[in-house]
């Protein structure tokens, strides 16, 4: 997606730190800016803090210090701000986390109905539109357990989109999938990027990063080691640590 015009800054992270119990330093002074319509891919070894950073962006994890501003709203202790940010930032999880007691339709319309207070007809219309977009119209009355992993993840993406978010966060969305299902999920994500969605994606899918990403961030030990354009990141990475990581994952065919 290299020919689109990016908009204003929509995510501003300023020297955020986070320490878990037992002194595990998950994030150490991370700063980051993301513009509207930008697709930022975060890669790094496991335990590098990339998921934690992502989870801080919608308030799933609280930060110890530093500031996060989403669409001009500071993510602070004000309940109203937190709620606003949660509704404006959609999130897709590694393990899908669909609600197993609900059909696909109910999964998707829950947000619009109980958060946006949309009418049932309105919520259903949104649901049907979104399912058409992820190519699962015929699964509307199915339960999550009747779907394949790839289908479940596409439903999870539709569920997040139902809130009409400004930003989508993806936390290793294809890591729990069988290899043959990775493609269908990446396809949906790619279309989303083409439509101009602002996305922050934690992934090991180098192909996706190359094709869809505008910028790559490499993290290790709770810090951003390198931040680079997609071309430079793979062609001539600046840091030794990045080169080492890249050589490892490229050896293994793109999956860590």
């Amino acid at each position: 997606m290299h020919n689109k015009t990016l908009g204003e800054t929509i995510i501003a992270v300023d020297s955020v730190s986070k320490t878990f119990d037992r002194n595990v330093k998950a994030l150490q002074g991370v700063s980051l800016k993301v513009k509207q319509k930008e697709v930022v891919v975060i890669i790094g070894p496991s335990g590098s803090g990339k998921s934690t950073l992502l989870r801080c962006l919608n308030g799933l994890e609280e930060t110890d210090s530093g500031a996060i501003v989403i669409d001009d709203t500071p993510l602070n202790e004000h309940h109203r701000n937190k709620l606003k940010i949660r509704t404006e930032v959609g999130m897709v999880f590694q393990n899908f986390n669909l609600f197993p007691h609900m059909t696909v339709r109910e999964n998707i319309r829950t947000g619009p109905r109980f958060v946006r207070k949309a009418s049932l007809e309105e919520a259903d219309r949104t649901t049907e539109d979104l399912l058409a977009r992820v190519g699962l119209t015929d699964k509307i009355e199915s339960y999550p357990r009747q779907l394949s992993g790839g289908q479940q993840q596409r439903v999870a993406i539709a569920r997040a989109l139902a809130m009409n978010p400004l930003i989508m966060l993806f936390d290793e969305p294809t890591s729990a999938l069988d290899p043959e299902m990775v493609g269908e999920v990446l396809e949906v994500m790619k279309n989303l990027a083409i439509e101009g969605m602002t996305m922050v994606v934690v992934t090991h899918e180098i192909g996706f990063a190359r094709e869809v990403g505008d910028r790559i961030i490499f993290m290790d030990e709770g810090k951003i080691v390198e931040e680079n354009s997609v071309e430079n990141f793979f062609a001539n990475p600046e840091k030794e640590r990045t080169k080492l990581f890249l050589s490892k994952i490229l050896e293994n065919g793109g999956c860590e």
Binding site: N58, G59, L60, L83, R86, T87, V89, G90, M91, F93, N95, N97, L98, F99, P100, H101, T110, G111, F114, V115, A156, R159, A160, A162, M163
Partner: peptide, 24 residues
């Protein structure tokens, strides 16, 4: 993960209980 997904779509604490957690 169920709590987190409910949180991420913006459900209030009450709605998380009422619609997601308690039925299961």
């Amino acid at each position: 993960g169920q709590w987190e997904a409910a949180h991420a779509i913006g459900l209030s604490r009450f709605s998380q209980f009422r619609h997601i957690i308690l039925p299961q």
